[in-house]
Design a binder for these strands. Sequence first.
DNA 1: ATCGTTCTTGTAAACGTTTACAGGAGCCGC
DNA 2: GCGGCTCCTGTAAACGTTTACAAGAACGAT
Lengths: 348, 348
Amino acid sequence: MAGTKKSTLALVAERAGVSIASVSRVLNGLSASADVTERVQQAASDLGYVPDATARSLKVGRTEQIALAVADAANPVYMSMMNEVSRVVADGGYRLVLSSTGADPANELDLLSGLDRGFVDGLILSPLRVTDELVEHLRRSRIPIVVLGSLPEGVPLDNVRADSVIGMRLALKHLAKQGRRRIAFLNGPVDTVPGATRLRGYLAAVEEYGTAQQADLQVEADDFTFAAGLPAAEALLDQSSPDAIVCANDLLAVAALKAIARRGLRVPQDIAVVGMDDTEIAQLVHPTLTSVDLGAAKRARTAAKLLLRRLGDPDAEVRQVVIEPKLRVRESSAKDAAREPSRTEASR
Amino acid sequence: MAGTKKSTLALVAERAGVSIASVSRVLNGLSASADVTERVQQAASDLGYVPDATARSLKVGRTEQIALAVADAANPVYMSMMNEVSRVVADGGYRLVLSSTGADPANELDLLSGLDRGFVDGLILSPLRVTDELVEHLRRSRIPIVVLGSLPEGVPLDNVRADSVIGMRLALKHLAKQGRRRIAFLNGPVDTVPGATRLRGYLAAVEEYGTAQQADLQVEADDFTFAAGLPAAEALLDQSSPDAIVCANDLLAVAALKAIARRGLRVPQDIAVVGMDDTEIAQLVHPTLTSVDLGAAKRARTAAKLLLRRLGDPDAEVRQVVIEPKLRVRESSAKDAAREPSRTEASR
DNA sequence: ATCGTTCTTGTAAACGTTTACAGGAGCCGC
DNA sequence: GCGGCTCCTGTAAACGTTTACAAGAACGAT
């Protein structure tokens, strides 16, 4: 069947006794006589011909590749996003180039400059920090970019974001309704976009629902990870005695669960815990974790579709989509402890 | 600084008043007079010139891209592998193209045939199932492939695998030494490579340590996921009363923990649980999960390095690396329940 | 029978690089 | 002062496609 040597249009043409133009036409389904079609197809299959992607790209000016750049691919929420993007993009006939930018904004800039090399047709970018310089680069990019996450007003780029302010509101409302008054906030770095907006949401909700507002109810982990969350949660429990903790992240929430368990306190009886992102982890831990679903999968899917749309129609109007958060109540904040998870999701 | 219009060698040449060959040479650091060098660099930066990746690829016959194909990107163990590969590959100056093949072997075959289109220089493949047809395709591939996982004898391909038979042996030895006699096995699909070898390892270890060998101590989940593991674990507890469960996977192990908790049994006092892969999840759950570290990160890193090596030297001798498993004892199998995790890993 | 259509096919240019080759300038030693 | 050397630079070919254009064949209509 497939030979092991490289094969080219010219070879096929020679074998079929036609010109390379005819071969190209037949293989691309353009008009050709039955005779030529037959001979070309025969020759092509004899030689196991496969068109060269690079040459084609150079000629048609498209690579059929899309880049996805996320800050921290180790975070489960990015993983689920990646999976969604991967699927949509593949369905659209594109390959996915992965770009792990890491926490350093410089990498994002590097990536953006590198984009002009034209190795992808479009980019989905999920920046942790949005600097002016980044925005400037985004504006003058030669290829379509859709941003996954918040963007300053007036930047004319497709983007899809979660409304985490409302998300925090949902969490605090839920807790306040149970009579929780000392609701703490375990945040990640506040100099990141998610960290900043979630803090804003927390403060607004504390105000709205009239729960305790004390500085010692807020703590900031060095990173949105379990490892960073653990000491932060410990510190929080040391410095205050909350009756609920809402966390910027499921990983941080799991860290809170652990810190609470180490002190012999009970969840949710003594302290309720609410996470954010509603990753798979929320359902794995014990007790299962109440979490604010910011629609990561949906955001990712939407972003990918927006990009495909723009690749198809570069002049389409700019669209900014906001995904509405949903609260997934589970054991870690249930009023009656015996309650089952409210919803079971398949994990794949 | 960078202009927003596309720029080409010819434009730079014109502006600098030299030939395109000279421009290319200067930009690639080849010999050139100070005068020309100066003028070219000036012109290039004026125009914000960036070389076109596609054209370069076509000419030099390399794409600087490497593909990574995994069956199920949603599995946390693949995620960690992906991160490692991503890093090594990036350090080597390559981009990473992600290919989620899914459970269907047909997709892997598609991918392999597509590889001849030459959009990547090499491939790291982690197949769930290894069919003859797959092996045949692997042999006649035109680009280097390194296989992440077991491979039939005599296939001359770089590969790196875990010795999960020894891994299972470690797990059972640990449990048997505690006096556990009814050690159950919660496996994933046995028609996959991991499923098959882990079963083999379990049976051999049961033999070696003389623990109970009963059919009802073995159960097979439909997939290596939490969702699939839950009913399987329930069934296991229904049909037998093990004093330990070793699982093919951390996700399955977490499912076992949950099923056990639902019955009001205690871990590890009533039933010890051991997982496999030692993913981050093992440290998040309560109780923390003893797990066999199959060196996923190390395997991935090694595979990536092997591929880079072969890309640099196509005639290097074929290397097959086996990574030695290590047991990470944690609370879920501790003899004395108050014991702390034996080792704390940073999560990033 | 001739002209005009339509349909098929081949020739050749183009995409943006890299690089083999050759021509020319400068320089040295004799 | 001239052959030979080195060093620099330009011309042009090549990578493997796609596609505009023209040429030719076949055929119908007048």
